[in-house]
Design a protein around this nucleic acid. Sequence first.
DNA 1: ATTATATTTCGAACGTGTTCAACTCGGAGG
DNA 2: CCTCCGAGTTGAACACGTTCGAAATATAAT
Lengths: 227, 227
Amino acid sequence: MINTAMKTRPTPRALDTRRRIYDRALELFREKGFDQTTMRDIAAKAGVALGAAYYYFSSKEAIVLAFYHDMQEVSHESILEAMEGHKRLRDRIRVVLEKRLELLAPNRKFCDALFRHAPDTSDPLSPFSAQTRPIRERAIEHLRVAVEGGDIKVPADLKQHLPYLLWLYQMAIILFWLYDRSPRQQRTLALIEKSLGLLVGMLRLSALPLMKPLRKTMLELVDALAV
Amino acid sequence: MINTAMKTRPTPRALDTRRRIYDRALELFREKGFDQTTMRDIAAKAGVALGAAYYYFSSKEAIVLAFYHDMQEVSHESILEAMEGHKRLRDRIRVVLEKRLELLAPNRKFCDALFRHAPDTSDPLSPFSAQTRPIRERAIEHLRVAVEGGDIKVPADLKQHLPYLLWLYQMAIILFWLYDRSPRQQRTLALIEKSLGLLVGMLRLSALPLMKPLRKTMLELVDALAV
DNA sequence: ATTATATTTCGAACGTGTTCAACTCGGAGG
DNA sequence: CCTCCGAGTTGAACACGTTCGAAATATAAT
């Protein structure tokens, strides 16, 4: 159970109340978007007092974070599944991205709330924070699998960091997609195609002896960022 | 005059009021940060009613945007100046970045407000929006100058887009710097060194015939992003 | 069964960004 | 000097996220 003010083992009734709040909240977010939905709306539709919502979720954004968590939980299998049968790294990554977007699509209206405090890694609600680490690890794991089963030989030093880098790449794609106003988000699909081409091209090159020093600089850079 | 509700030519008294609100606001932002400063604080310290602040600035963030504008105005000369005497591209870019951070430093506490709505390019307050374009162009111009006067031969096709790409790079550095909690923001300085190494290394390689297809893919990618 | 404790629910109240209808007042036109 | 228009100014009011102490209800202890 993520993200509640509940300190002890909750009663079944409590779980039911929490669920009602959560479900109605997501419905409203989907309908009207995050900003246009008020906590009073949510409480009213769930048939509880305003305070009850805050008993289960420490903030409005915490509801979205709970969704982020559930989403990762639910999507795990289907993403691994979607990768099966694909041998080329390019296809494997594409499938992960497209599956993720497909799963996110019904909730596109409010997912932008997730990125609201993103740059502040000390904010518990940031997708980059220590608190969201378990959720993040799962997503990174998908990309690790994608790389492992792929057809491209990646130098060992780079391979270690590659899943994390690909996760960052995925986050960037999602961010672009969230604000992509083109019909059926075609621009995002185009972006994925182009960027995958670039990515795979660079990976191939990275194995060249000529690239050793650059690769070294880049990995140092990643270390400097991570700490 | 950016960002005011004033429709007609303002009177000197109005300009004075506006200036008072602006100056006191920045003082408070510097002291306490953006979030911790209320519009009521600002109005009180400026000796005006709450409504007056909104007569001159359409929102709290609009005050920060006005600062962003002024900053660009003021820094133009000193950044070009700082570049003089530097011949190596790496040094020229470093100087631009470091000068920008130096100028921003006193206001580090509240500049993060600028990035609040950044991903939404339709938001007038986003640094990527159409409304902030003139401000942006100035910053890009600095980087154009940096490239022009540099020692590295960049392929023509890439050269065209390079200033914009470097501006994106600069924005990323600033973002990192804003949230860098290391003493004296050493991590940012380290990041700049490493990333500049990578950047210049990649630029050198980009001239190789081998790189033609990758460069093409990348430029198509940039086009896809820019609409 | 009764009391005591813990969990859940409630809604008034607070702080804040923002809006707006009404008011003030300097100066242009008479 | 008076009148009047509109730029400039005012502060009450609104909406919303959030807090908190008290009330209600469930659970455990005696």
